[in-house]
Structures are given as structure tokens and as C-alpha cells.
Amino acid sequence: MTFREALRRRVLNIILVFAVVSIGVSQLFSWLSTGEEMKFILDMCSNSIRFFSMLIAVLLGASMIPGEIERHTIFTILSKPVGRTQFLLGKYFGALLTLLMNIAIMSAIFMVVLALKKQGHPYLVNPTLWKGLFLVVIEVALLLAIAVAVSTVASTAFNLVFSFFIYFTGQMGSVFNELSKPERVANPVGRGLMALVYHILPHFENFDLRQPLLMGDPVPFRYVGEVTGAAVVYIAVVLALGYLLFSQREF
């Protein structure tokens, strides 16, 4: 039901159109030199997929539970023999399916753009590119889990701001790690706070493989496995926390 409902939401379809357009127009920059053109296409397309997927994840997740409450549809669902765990996980995986479909469409357009350029053909089978797309999926699955968990207790507006804040702050994991070192910050309380933030926040920067893709550097499967494993654990913890909050919620 979540998947079907998401397909009909205009704002999500508009975002998808923008994503497809921004991926599609990247190939118009043929006036750049060949090497730069490919780098530009790879960077812009990867970035567009990542950015628009993030937008869709936050929009979907933030309105998940508040939307059901505002429409009063939650009363008729929770009055059925549906456990709250089942309800929450059902909403999450339905939204995830929507995200996967959107990422698949954007990736397909990306592949078409690469196929239209002769110098883009090697990238169609580039392992780093495919690992990068895979990590985009894992990244937005994590962000979606955070948004869904927060949606069990927060309004859509608060959740939107909060989720975006977590996402963008999570890009700065290395900064917080640096600031937790004594040579950077003398104050032990400040260092402790930075260390806490570093360890609590998800490290979204780890999912970004644009740099190795553009530089032609290989990315080991082990790295992808470690980042994915950490994300899966984080998702499980976040959804468990969301369930705890949701189980106490009255309607």
C-alpha cells in the first residue's frame, strides 16, 4: 500500500522528473574537452542520483506516520490484527521499494547517457561505478530508516529539517573525528562531545564513491562490505528505536 501510494504522490514524481532531466542534460556539455566531459558527466550524474534519492528518502520517510495520522487511516489499520512492528516495517519496506524503483530509473538514464558517448562505454561495466550505485541504495535505506523512526513521534515539518540536518552533518564525520583529537581541541569536554557526535552520527560520507570513480581508483569489495554491514546494523538499531517510540504512541 505504501508503495502504491508513493507512486501517486506528485511531489515525488516531480523530483524524479528533475532527476532524470539533470542526468539527461549532463551530456549536452560536449564543448568540454573529452577527458573533462566524461568527468563532468560522471560527477553530475552520480551527484544527481545521490541528491535526488536523498530528497525522496527524506520526503517519504518524514511523512510516513504523520500522513497516516492526519488522514485518520491509521485508526482502521491498527484496529486490525496488525502489530505495530508489522505496521512500521511494512511502511519502511514499502517506501524502500519506491526508492529502489526511483534509483533504478535514474540509473537507467545514467547508463543511456554513458552509452551515447563512445568514451562512456567502459564505464558501463566499471566496478566502481556499480559499487557506487549500490552504496547509494544503502545510504538512502539508512536515511529512510532514520526518517521513518523519527516520524513515529515527530511532525513532518520537524522531521524534514531534522533528517536533512542529520544527512548533511553526517557528511562531516571526518571533521568530527579530527576535532575529537587532543592536538585539535584542548578542552576535554569539547573533545568528548565531538567524539560522541562522531560515533553516534551515521557516516554518510563513506557511501560517496565519486572521488575514486573520477580518479579511476579501485574500491575493494571489503570496503563495500564493511560500509554495508555497518549501515545494516545502524538501520536495525534505528528501526528498533522507532518501534519502541511507536509502541508507546496513542492514537
Binding site: 500500500m1 482502521t76 484496529s79
Partner: peptide, 9 residues
């Protein structure tokens, strides 16, 4: 259960 003024999708 039929709630007051029911809403559905």
C-alpha cells in the same frame, strides 16, 4: 471497527 467520519486512501 467503523470510526467516525471514516477516511481511507
Amino acid at each position: 471497527f467503523l470510526p467516525e467520519g471514516p477516511y481511507f486512501y
